[in-house]
């Protein structure tokens, strides 16, 4: 009797220690997240005190006069991300369909693996390729062509320099394409075979099966993948910094150089020589963190919704 009590006592003690230890690390993740928010908010205090809400609406960026505003980098982040999504989403859904349903079966496995491997390539490689290979091609061929045929639209006006918003959007699109494509492919592959076969059996064409069976079935996963890709694009640094041009102008032209939040931080953070300058950069980081938090948070909520089978 004594022995049993002893061992159970020891067991309970060891188990509760183990449980508390693992709990402490799990809580560590929450603490880390809160710590990031608090540290960024605390350190951006000089900028918040000085500029208040006008920080978000001001186009100023003048380190000499210590005047800073977030509007240009915020707009640059949104425009480059939007461009990237416009290019990458249709392309990656096309790629996913091709890999899941259309390609001859001997091609599917190697192509699918290739796409997944491409998603693992570091973004700095995409950025560097954009600078040395894509930007000259944009300047010499693509942008003059766009200007000749679409030059009457303000979006395609201005000198074709190769480096600028359009190239940044394109490189960003190439970087997120493998990610969105491989997740979407997995979603398409999860569609039960008998559903597809039933539709084919009723005489549906491949496109009709895709449109009426596969897309409705995988809608949740596809939308989730798109939003996760968008969250990545918003905060992407290296793919953008090389090719966005690093200039503080608001312009209608997509050929004009600009700046995103991440590229501003990458270029200027170690050079900030005054408290307000540093604080403004940290506040920019806070804005970026909140922007991605909203997009990623919404994506996760969307993906979690209906896990219990409420949503089809």
């Amino acid at each position: 009797m004594k022995l049993t009590m002893n061992t159970t006592g020891k067991k309970a003690w060891g188990d509760s220690l183990f449980r508390s230890l693992t709990l402490a690390f799990a809580l560590g993740i929450l603490v880390l997240f809160a710590g990031i928010l608090i540290a960024l908010w605390h350190e951006s205090a000089p900028a918040i005190d000085k500029f208040g809400f006008s920080f978000l609406t001001s186009t100023a960026w003048n380190p000499v006069k210590d005047e800073f505003g977030a509007l240009i980098p915020v707009v640059g982040t949104l425009v480059s991300t939007l461009l990237a999504m416009l290019i990458a989403v249709p392309l990656s859904i096309g790629v996913a369909l091709f890999l899941a349903e259309l390609a001859p079966s001997w091609l599917r496995a190697p192509f699918g693996t290739a796409i997944e491997l491409l998603a693992a390539i570091p973004s700095i490689v995409y950025g560097m390729w954009g600078l040395f290979v894509l930007a000259p091609i944009m300047a010499d061929h693509v942008q003059p062509w766009l200007q000749t045929y679409l030059g009457f639209i303000p979006l395609f006006s201005g000198p074709p320099m190769g480096i600028g918003m359009l190239t940044a959007g394109l490189v960003l699109a190439l970087m997120i394409l493998p990610f969105i494509a491989s997740v979407t492919r997995d979603v398409f592959l999860m569609v039960p075979k008998n559903l597809k076969e039933a539709a084919y059996g009723m005489g549906a064409t491949t496109w009709e099966v895709v449109r009426d069976v596969m897309i409705p079935y995988g809608k949740k996963g596809i939308v989730g993948a798109v939003f996760l890709g968008m969250g990545r694009a918003l905060g992407e640094t290296m793919a953008v910094t090389f090719v966005i041009g690093n200039a503080y102008h608001l312009s209608w032209s997509l050929f004009a150089p600009g700046n995103s939040i991440a590229s501003t931080l990458a270029n200027e953070f170690t050079e900030a020589d005054s408290d307000v300058y540093l604080a403004s950069l940290i506040e920019l980081g806070l804005v970026l963190f909140l922007m991605t938090f909203i997009v990623l948070g919404a994506a996760q909520l969307w993906l979690r919704r209906g896990v219990a089978g409420v949503d089809k």
Partner: peptide, 16 residues
């Protein structure tokens, strides 16, 4: 929170 941190901008982590 982990799922959000997985895709959080790495430059902000550097700043932290």
């Amino acid at each position: 929170v982990s799922d959000i941190l997985v895709s959080a901008p790495s430059i902000v982590i550097g700043m932290f």
